[in-house]
């Protein structure tokens, strides 16, 4: 019920945006900026100017498309679909996930690298500092293929249903679930390099 109300507010904003109302655009940006910015940052693996640029492009595209928008899908689904398109195009042009991983690796603080030591000598999870743990998760996330990364983010942080995730990715609900399963397996493998899972 609350989701419907939210969507009605969004629809009203989009309608006003379609008439060129900048006040509505501001409200719309404020409603979605954290979700869009967070999704882009999670997907491309940093918080630099690229994230801001891509997130701004999302709103620019929505502003341009608002006059032609038809109320067929949920606005939040539409916003996330536009975000996905831009992020996937950006990642593809940048050389896909290999470079994303490199970005994260490059950003690893020297102190952590020295402290952690070789993978084989790594201690269990309890020995990992908060920063190191966050970095391990970021690294594992960066190694996931783009679609799997987006599915995990949309499910874990945005708390979307698989049907909606499938709509955003242009796949079926079952396909989204399958991606989630594969992402989980990949994450387990990657994170097991940092600590041993309790049995």
């Amino acid at each position: 019920m609350a989701a419907n109300q939210e969507n009605e507010i969004d629809q009203a904003l989009i309608l006003r945006m379609g008439q060129g109302n900048e006040e509505a655009l501001r409200d719309f940006i404020l409603r979605y900026q954290d979700r869009v910015y967070g999704t882009v940052a999670k997907m491309i693996g940093n918080t630099g100017p690229d994230v801001e640029d891509l997130a701004q492009q999302v709103f620019l595209r929505i502003w341009k498309a608002a006059p032609r928008h038809r109320a067929e899908a949920k606005i939040s689904t539409w916003v996330m679909t536009v975000t996905r398109n831009l992020v996937f195009t950006f990642c593809t042009s940048r050389g896909s996930r290999r470079e994303v991983s490199d970005v994260v690796l490059d950003e690893e603080p020297e102190e952590l690298r020295e402290k952690r030591g070789p993978v084989t000598e790594r201690s269990p999870r309890e020995d990992l500092s908060g920063k190191e743990l966050v970095h391990a998760v970021q690294l594992a996330c960066a190694h996931l293929p783009m679609k799997q990364r987006l599915v995990v983010h949309l499910r874990q942080h945005e708390e979307l249903e698989f049907a909606e995730i499938g709509e955003i990715l242009g796949i079926s609900e079952l396909g989204a679930k399958s991606l989630m399963f594969r992402a989980r397996e990949n994450l387990k493998i990657k994170l097991s390099e940092f600590f041993t899972e309790p049995s």
Partner: peptide, 16 residues
Amino acid sequence: SAPVPKAPPWFATRTL
């Protein structure tokens, strides 16, 4: 444990 970054405070103004 890896937090999702939030948009900076100036984001809306710059985007507009």
